[in-house]
Structure formats: C-alpha cells, structure tokens
C-alpha cells in the first residue's frame, strides 16, 4: 500500500501539468486553463515531446491496469488478496477517469454445467462490481455480464488452464479516449 501511495503522490505532483495538453496537442493554440499559464514554462519541442511521451506511457499503463484480468478460486466468487490489489489499482484509475465506463465479464472453468456456470460467472462479475462500488465508483459506470464457461482462455483440461479461465475481464465501453492515470 505504501508504494502505491508514493506512486499516487508522484503522479499527483506531475501529471496535471500536462493533463490538459492531451486534449489539444502541440503546436499551440495554448491551453486556456490558468494553471497551465501559471506553471508551464516555455518549452522546446523536444521537452514537449518527452512530456507527451511520458503522458502517453502513463495513459497506456492506466489502461492496462483497467484491463488487467483478475482470477477466482474454484466454484467461488470470493475476492482474493491478489485480486483486491488489482481492483484497488483500478479504483484509482477510475477515480481519475470519470468518463470511463467498464464492462466486467465473469468467466468460469469448464467444470460445472453450462447454465449454472452462467450464474456463477455473473456472481464473479457482480462481486467485482460491488467491490469497486464500495470504493466509491458509481454502479452506473460498471456493467456486468457472464460468459459462463463458454469463452475459455486456455482450452486444456488441467489445473493451470482452469485457474486461468476462472476470471473477470474488463472491457472499456466508454471514455476510452479519456483515461487518466491515477491522480
């Protein structure tokens, strides 16, 4: 948790300076916001590109945090400690990106029946949604759907494949061009 807070502090300090530039990339017209006027020094194109590249990298990382899969124990929709860590990172990105909406897809391994696994996959997606809502993310931004066991990642019939297939996936359904790194 400490390292995460440090990361947040770093991002809070550095990111807003360039946040507005993403919308209106260089060359000018200069951004209208006062903060930009006050804090941005005249920059060389190289610095500008560096900042833009850093910004792009941070956005890409935020997107991959949003889209990273989480996994579940056999026949359960329990949020494990590992899953909790991943979901807390998503909370930060979602808080920084109010226009982003997610579809949470619940998946199961091949054991269990077709139709009951649809229910179980939904419980998983709902458990994730509830977790994110408990951290203040509006339920309106979070849609759930279950794919049961019908979309396996790994086709094999062994423990490794089953563990891989018991998962929730995250699809950005709106605001994909407005993802911000945690602030």
């Amino acid at each position: 948790m400490h390292s995460r807070l440090i990361l947040v502090a770093f991002l809070v300090a550095s990111v807003p300076l360039t946040a507005c530039r993403r919308e209106q990339p260089p060359p000018p017209p200069p951004p209208a916001e006062e903060t930009t006027e006050e804090t941005t020094q005249p920059q060389q194109p190289d610095d500008d590109n560096d900042a833009a590249a850093e910004r792009a990298r941070a956005i890409a990382e935020a997107r991959s945090i949003l889209e990273e899969r989480v996994h579940f124990p056999f026949d359960e929709s329990t949020i494990t400690p590992e899953t909790e860590q991943l979901l807390l990172q998503k909370v930060e990105v979602l808080q920084a990106s109010p226009n982003v909406q997610l579809r949470i897809e619940g998946h199961c391994d091949e054991r269990g029946s077709v139709e009951y696994n649809l229910a179980l996959g939904n419980r998983r997606a709902e458990a994730v949604r509830q977790f994110l809502m408990d951290y203040g993310i509006s339920g309106d931004r979070l849609q759930t759907v279950s794919h049961g066991k019908e979309r396996p990642l790994a086709p094999e019939s062994n423990e490794t494949a089953w563990a891989q297939n018991r998962r929730a996936e995250f699809i950005v359904t709106a605001g994909g061009d407005q993802i911000n790194p945690p602030s």
């Binding site: 649809l118 229910a119 939904n122 997606a125 709902e126 759930t144 759907v145 279950s146």
Partner: peptide, 9 residues
C-alpha cells in the same frame, strides 16, 4: 427465463 445480476436475480 432467468434474469441474473444487478443485485437481484
């Protein structure tokens, strides 16, 4: 049919 999810099924 069944409606599953959204807090109530």
């Amino acid at each position: 049919f069944s409606v599953v999810g959204g807090g109530q099924s």
